[in-house]
Computed example of a mutant assay.
Amino acid sequence: MSKKILAVLSEYGYWGIELVGPLEKLEEAGYTVEFITPNGKKAEALPPSYDTTYVDPPLGVCVTTPLAAEKVKAFEVSNRLETRRNLSEVIPQRPYFSTPDFLRAFEKYYSDLKIAQESVTEEYAALLLVGGSGPIIDMVNNQRVHDLILAFYNKQMPVAGICYGVAPLVFARDFNERNSIIKGKHVTGHCIEYDYQDGTGFLHTDLNMGPPPYVLEYLLADAVGPEGQYHGNFGKETSVIVDYPFITARSLQCSFEFGEQFVNVLDKGLTRYGW
């Protein structure tokens, strides 16, 4: 099995420890983590994720610990993210239906996609979707991210998401079937109690979205359906759920446990955890 993991990062800001936590655990287990962004631009950690004075409004406490801040700052100056792949060069864009000679273009898209998906699943053992507010803009409803997820899902290879990195799982669907890939599954993700009422912000834009544009808990609960279950675990310090091939984590507090269970899935065949 490949010892490489592919991590998808937003170009509008990721939450530092939600990458650095699982990265640390994966590297300790001998895995190499490579990075990819939607258009090849460098990903950067959101400033609150390395600011120990930042008080999280819903929780009313400083959520960035000194240890997390230290690790994130060290990672940011390491220039690891100077080397990254460009998702728009890896996965083809699905054509508009108004494209001239659409059927031929659509056939080519599927042909090229099959080759691309085969390539990434041969090179990497698993997929990591990193959270933060940035994914709201350029990962959640990104067809190329969806097709990347489906590459691993269709081969029943591990797909791991934390916080808003879980959200693309709701929308990654076979274009013809259009059924949720997490239907019947057990998942966790950013619970409604953690949602901001104001201040959902992003790097490289002055946009303050106010609250998030959607309630992730509701999206996940609806997508898993009555046969599955969304687990918010509000009040518990962490919430990490494994329902193979998915490994999901609620938020930043789960980062290290998320990484540990990710490794257990890869190395020990773990298929169920947290429910």
Rank of each mutant, 00 (worst) to 15 (best):
residue 99 T to D: 12
residue 119 S to I: 00
residue 166 V to S: 10
residue 100 P to E: 12
residue 240 V to G: 01
residue 19 L to I: 03
residue 129 L to V: 09
residue 200 T to W: 10
residue 146 H to W: 15
residue 253 Q to T: 14
residue 83 T to I: 13
residue 63 V to G: 12
residue 118 E to Q: 15
residue 235 G to A: 09
residue 242 V to K: 03
residue 171 F to W: 15
residue 92 P to G: 11
residue 111 S to T: 14
residue 120 V to N: 05
residue 253 Q to G: 11
residue 198 D to R: 14
residue 76 E to K: 04
residue 116 A to T: 08
residue 47 P to H: 12
residue 114 K to A: 12
residue 158 P to R: 07
residue 51 D to T: 07
residue 200 T to C: 12
residue 221 A to E: 15
residue 104 R to V: 10
residue 249 A to K: 02
residue 118 E to R: 14
residue 199 G to K: 09
residue 244 Y to W: 03
residue 100 P to I: 10
residue 159 V to I: 14
residue 53 T to R: 13
residue 79 N to M: 13
residue 16 G to F: 02
residue 154 N to C: 03
residue 57 P to G: 06
residue 205 T to P: 05
residue 55 V to I: 15
residue 230 Y to M: 09
residue 113 L to T: 11
residue 203 L to Q: 13
residue 99 T to F: 11
residue 214 Y to P: 03
residue 269 G to F: 12
residue 142 N to P: 04
residue 120 V to L: 06
residue 124 Y to F: 15
residue 30 G to N: 03
residue 152 F to Q: 11
residue 159 V to F: 06
residue 110 Y to Q: 08
residue 216 L to H: 05
residue 245 P to L: 06
residue 230 Y to W: 14
residue 91 I to F: 12
residue 166 V to W: 05
residue 67 L to T: 13
residue 116 A to E: 07
residue 187 V to P: 07
residue 124 Y to R: 05
residue 125 A to D: 08
residue 92 P to N: 12
residue 71 K to S: 03
residue 85 R to D: 04
residue 135 P to D: 10
residue 74 A to M: 07
residue 154 N to W: 01
residue 88 S to P: 00
residue 162 I to R: 05
residue 213 P to V: 10
residue 259 G to T: 01
residue 211 P to Q: 07
residue 169 L to G: 08
residue 85 R to G: 14
residue 229 Q to I: 09
residue 227 E to I: 04
residue 78 S to D: 08
residue 218 Y to V: 05
residue 79 N to E: 15
residue 25 K to C: 02
residue 224 V to W: 04
residue 256 F to H: 12
residue 175 F to W: 10
residue 271 T to E: 02
residue 80 R to S: 12
residue 44 E to D: 05
residue 151 A to K: 09
residue 58 P to A: 09
residue 250 R to A: 11
residue 218 Y to L: 13
residue 141 N to E: 14
residue 105 A to E: 15
residue 216 L to F: 05
residue 136 I to K: 07
residue 32 T to S: 13
residue 241 I to L: 13
residue 189 G to T: 12
residue 67 L to G: 07
residue 239 S to L: 09
residue 180 S to F: 14
residue 23 L to T: 01
residue 146 H to V: 04
residue 74 A to D: 13
residue 206 D to E: 15
residue 71 K to P: 00
residue 157 M to W: 00
residue 120 V to E: 05
residue 264 N to G: 00
residue 261 Q to P: 01
residue 187 V to L: 11
residue 156 Q to F: 06
residue 201 G to L: 10
residue 45 A to K: 02
residue 235 G to E: 08
residue 248 T to N: 14
residue 212 P to F: 03
residue 43 A to E: 10
residue 143 Q to K: 11
residue 107 E to Q: 11
residue 13 G to E: 13
residue 272 R to G: 01
residue 51 D to Y: 06
residue 25 K to L: 02
residue 196 Y to T: 03
residue 256 F to K: 08
residue 48 P to M: 09
residue 10 S to E: 11
residue 168 P to A: 13
residue 10 S to F: 11
residue 240 V to R: 02
residue 232 G to T: 08
residue 174 D to N: 15
residue 263 V to E: 01
residue 122 E to N: 13
residue 172 A to I: 09
residue 207 L to H: 10
residue 58 P to Q: 10
residue 253 Q to I: 07
residue 45 A to C: 02
